[in-house]
Amino acid sequence: MDILLVLTYVALATVVFKVFKIPLNKWTLPTAGLGGLFLIGAIIVIMNYNHPYSETSREYFASTPIIPAVRGRVVEVNVQANEKVKQGDVLFRIDPAPFQDKVSSLEGRLVAANADQERAQELVRRKVGTQRDLDQAKALVSQLEGELGVARYNLEQCVVRAPTDGWVTQQFLHPGMMAVPMPLRPVMVFIHDEHYQYVGWFRQNSTLRLKPGYEAEVAFDAIPGSVFSAKVKAVLPVMAQGELQAGGHLLSSERETHPGRVPVILEIDDPEFIALYDQVPGGSFGQSAIYSDHFEHLSVIRKVLLRMNAWMNYLFPFH
């Protein structure tokens, strides 16, 4: 685009020199050159500030690690990789035998404990038993009821279901494997079937030109030659580089690597992109531009530049 601006200026300067018959000398020629340099530089600087561009933008999605609530051997896997399922559909089953045995044992003990409680109540009514024996019988019944509730819950957890609509990706779980309730060892990764968030990472220099409601455009590397309209949905008020957590270390300038960029959430509302939504993989990379309400006429240059970058996506190294 800068070459195009230079060529346009050269053409205009040539026309001016010929129409007005301005002589070429040591004053007019440097003046025209420096004037063009200043004019084109000013246009580019004003455009960069008022219509910011981010070459680092990405589509983000939420995932949930599937961790069983109980330990056991997997006896059945009911889901295929990358096939959509509904909320509540069975993902896999854990062998329920030991948990069912626990429930049956507690149910039997609870029946006996209830009978002992009734006998203790009858003895107290006849004044041949003690209140302490009755209290102990009631306590045992309450304890067994609580343990039975936990056992039934564990039995229910032998059937692991989908938390929401979505799909399991990279499914490696098979019958016979041991499922363990460890947070660091999920057995599946569940991807939620919801609209992804597209985030553009903009330089802090343009913070005053990043506001919700501004028009924007997005170009994906995965869809060369196409630019989609969007709007600024939100500008996140914090950046990861400034995050602090309680710990045993003091702040140090040596740990500061780079200033960081402002994350801006963009909402793509282009019907053409909605039609291609299922074909764009989550996590796709791209570029984005925001058009503020300042110096609006210069936004045309930014739009041309973004489209040129979109067409450049057709070119990539051969492997």
Rank of each mutant, 00 (worst) to 15 (best):
A42W: 14
Y214E: 00
V150I: 04
Q241K: 10
N25Q: 06
I66W: 01
N82Y: 10
V19D: 01
A97P: 07
K127I: 05
Q121L: 15
L29W: 01
T8K: 03
P96R: 08
Q121S: 14
P271D: 12
S292N: 07
Q204F: 01
L208I: 05
W27M: 04
L110F: 09
L276N: 02
A13M: 08
F190T: 13
R261I: 14
F285H: 09
K26L: 11
A222V: 12
A42P: 07
I67E: 09
P30I: 05
S142Q: 13
V159W: 03
G146N: 11
T207N: 08
I67K: 13
N78C: 09
T164E: 14
L37V: 12
S288L: 02
H174G: 01
P163F: 02
G108C: 03
K102Q: 14
K127M: 06
Q80S: 15
I94Q: 07
R203N: 12
K138H: 04
L251P: 02
V264T: 02
Q171Y: 00
E217Q: 08
P186Y: 07
I44G: 00
Y60M: 06
V16M: 11
G176N: 06
P237R: 00
I46T: 10
Q80W: 11
I265K: 03
F228A: 02
P212M: 06
Q143E: 10
E243M: 15
V15F: 15
G146K: 06
H195P: 07
V280Y: 08
Q287M: 03
W311N: 05
F295I: 12
G36H: 13
A120S: 09
E267Q: 06
L210E: 03
Y153W: 14
A310S: 13
E107V: 06
F99D: 02
M239G: 07
P186M: 10
Q117I: 05
L244D: 05
V187L: 14
Q80Y: 15
Q80A: 15
P281V: 13
P224N: 12
T28S: 14
S229L: 09
E156H: 01
V160P: 04
V150Y: 03
V232T: 08
P259A: 05
T64W: 10
Y314H: 09
E147Q: 15
P96L: 09
G225Q: 10
L134Y: 12
P98Q: 07
R93T: 06
T28R: 07
Y214K: 01
N25P: 04
R161P: 01
I40H: 12
L306D: 11
K18T: 13
I43M: 03
G149Y: 10
V19R: 07
E156N: 04
D116C: 00
G225L: 14
E215C: 04
V128G: 06
C158R: 04
S63H: 10
E76T: 13
E118N: 04
Q117K: 14
Q171P: 01
F99W: 08
P237V: 00
Y53Q: 00
V74I: 14
P281M: 11
L184C: 00
P183I: 15
S253Y: 10
M182E: 12
G283Q: 10
S288C: 03
